[in-house]
Amino acid sequence: MSENSQHDKSQESAEREEKHKRKSQKQKEKVDAKVAKATIEKGVMIVVTGNGKGKTTSGFGTVCRCVGHGYKAAVVQFIKGKWDCGERDLLEGHGVPFAVMGTGFTWNTQDRAGDIAAAEAVWTEAKKFLADPQYHLVLLDELTYMLGYDYLDKEEVLSTIANRPENQSVVVTGRGAIRELRDMADTVSEVKEEKHAFKAGIKARKGVDW
């Protein structure tokens, strides 16, 4: 390689580096400005919905983050049955209380009255968590189904969440979140399914899917 060619490549490299620095600096300034504007201190409501996999996983990830920082969290599981739950096995050992509906999927029970009674019983426990300021975070896993199926009184659920302690955060998961939940949430994430192993005949994996 000639001396001129080496010089040209060095100059191009320096110009790319300078361009990258200018672009990064502009991005940093934008991010810093947004961070500076976020001055409100309060608990948030997060809704994770959609037809893709990972909604409950996201909720439990937030619970783990909360507990990892030394805060208290509580978990309410609607729909879920009595089968093993790796997250529950782990988190109960770290002092996280669980209230579990325990009936499984409604299409398995085929008992609407029984499902409603079970939902109302677990909602009674949820209301205790949502009224207790010691809990930094409450996960309401699969709550969306309870509202979509009219198993719980919508107005009571919305009012209880809205009137929780000011610094308490709530994560609601499940498909088909109703408009009222989305509207009152601070953050809404829609999980979209592109592919799913189950549809290819692959069994759910312990330690991965449950």
Rank of each mutant, 00 (worst) to 15 (best):
P165K: 06
K192I: 15
L158A: 02
T187M: 11
S189W: 04
E166K: 10
E193F: 02
D186M: 01
D153G: 13
A185L: 05
R205P: 03
I202S: 04
Q168D: 06
A185V: 01
T187E: 04
E180G: 01
E190I: 09
P165E: 06
R179L: 00
Y151I: 03
L158C: 04
R182F: 04
L152C: 14
S159N: 10
F198Y: 15
K154T: 10
V172Y: 09
R175Y: 07
Q168G: 07
R164C: 03
K192D: 04
V171H: 15
Y151S: 13
E180I: 01
H196E: 12
A204Q: 14
K199E: 06
L158N: 00
E193N: 12
A162R: 13
K203M: 11
M184L: 11
T173Y: 13
S169P: 08
D153F: 07
G201N: 06
A185Q: 01
I161K: 02
I178T: 11
R164T: 02
K195L: 11
P165C: 06
V157T: 06
V170N: 09
I202F: 08
K199S: 08
A177G: 07
K195N: 12
A185H: 03
I202Q: 11
Q168V: 10
Y151D: 10
K203E: 15
L158Q: 04
V157Y: 05
V171Q: 15
S169M: 09
T187A: 08
E190T: 11
V188M: 00
I161H: 01
E180W: 01
A197Q: 15
D186R: 02
V188H: 01
V171Y: 14
I178C: 09
S159E: 10
E166G: 00
